[in-house]
């Protein structure tokens, strides 16, 4: 079973994130970059499936040069090899363009499953699994808290607002995972050392067969018109419970016409 796992480098959610004044894209340089958290669960799931069913795991990431740190982390966790799609022309790509670019890269690889995270914490589009399934013309098994593979049959439990759905498909398929699915391993020292020697292919858009007009800010399907920092919340009122905290809170809610 060959698996491609998609990981994205994102600005640390703890850092103060902002948009660039010049082109209104995410300022990726001014803050610490980390692996999109949920993608570590995607990597873990790929490794667990490989351990159970054999095969090879390839990590694919699209992003600026420094996204290599993210790729190395996946390799250190135990992924076998990596493809890094990086090109100035990709800057400012929207979700449909990103899915197109990733689909082109996937077209150069052999896989039974593509596994991604349910959501990247920077743009929070939460649809990449669906977009890729549409582009690749293969089944979408998204929002999985559990994945089971039996030969060419893949069965997931997909979380819904009211419970869960059991969904099945045949390989090849796209799976996206939620953080309930497993507990990602930490890279071992040995893993970190081994990562440095694992095969890494760096692709430009030309290498991947992507036309410049298909990607990038100027050709994006949507744009940020303007942005403003949210007005800071008025500092709230805080009280210490002196035995009447509940009553005081009820008084506040009444003053706000909630009750």
């Amino acid at each position: 079973m060959n698996i491609v796992v998609l990981v994205k480098q994102v600005p640390d959610t703890w850092a103060e994130r902002k948009l660039r004044d010049d082109d209104k894209t995410l300022d990726r340089d001014s803050v610490d970059a980390v692996v999109n958290e949920i993608d570590e669960y995607a990597v873990e799931e790929a490794l667990l499936l490989k351990e159970a069913h054999g095969g090879e795991v390839t990590v694919v990431s699209m992003g600026p040069e420094r996204a290599i740190e993210t790729i190395r982390k996946a390799l250190a966790m135990g992924v076998d090899k990596a493809v890094h799609l990086t090109d100035e022309a990709l800057h400012g790509s929207c979700a449909p363009q990103t899915s197109l670019a990733l689909a082109k890269v996937l077209g150069t690889l052999e896989y039974d499953l593509v596994i991604c995270g349910s959501e990247a914490v920077d743009a929070r589009v939460s649809a990449m699994g669906a977009l890729l399934a549409e582009r690749l013309g293969i089944p979408q098994l998204t929002g999985a808290r559990k994945v089971e593979v039996d030969g060419t049959n893949v069965r997931i439990e997909r979380l819904t607002d009211s419970g869960y759905e059991v969904v099945e498909a045949s390989t090849p398929a796209v799976v996206s995972v939620v953080e309930k699915i497993n507990e990602p391993r930490y890279p071992s020292f040995k893993g970190i050392m081994a990562a440095k020697k694992k095969p890494l292919t760096t692709l430009s858009i030309a290498d991947a067969g992507i036309e410049p007009a298909e990607v990038g800010l100027a050709n994006a399907t949507s744009e940020v018109v303007e942005f403003t920092p949210r007005p800071p919340r008025q500092t709230g009122q805080m009280i210490k419970d002196e035995g009447d905290g509940g009553v005081k809170l009820a008084e506040y809610l009444a003053s706000q016409k909630i009750i």
Binding site: G236, I239, G245, G246, V247
Partner: peptide, 22 residues
């Protein structure tokens, strides 16, 4: 930091009292 109104206290005291008052 986000709260419009905050009660610093033990929820096991505050919550039942709040429910009763409401």
């Amino acid at each position: 930091e986000l709260a419009d109104f905050g009660v610093v206290g033990d929820l096991f005291q505050v919550v039942p009292q709040l429910t009763e008052e409401i």
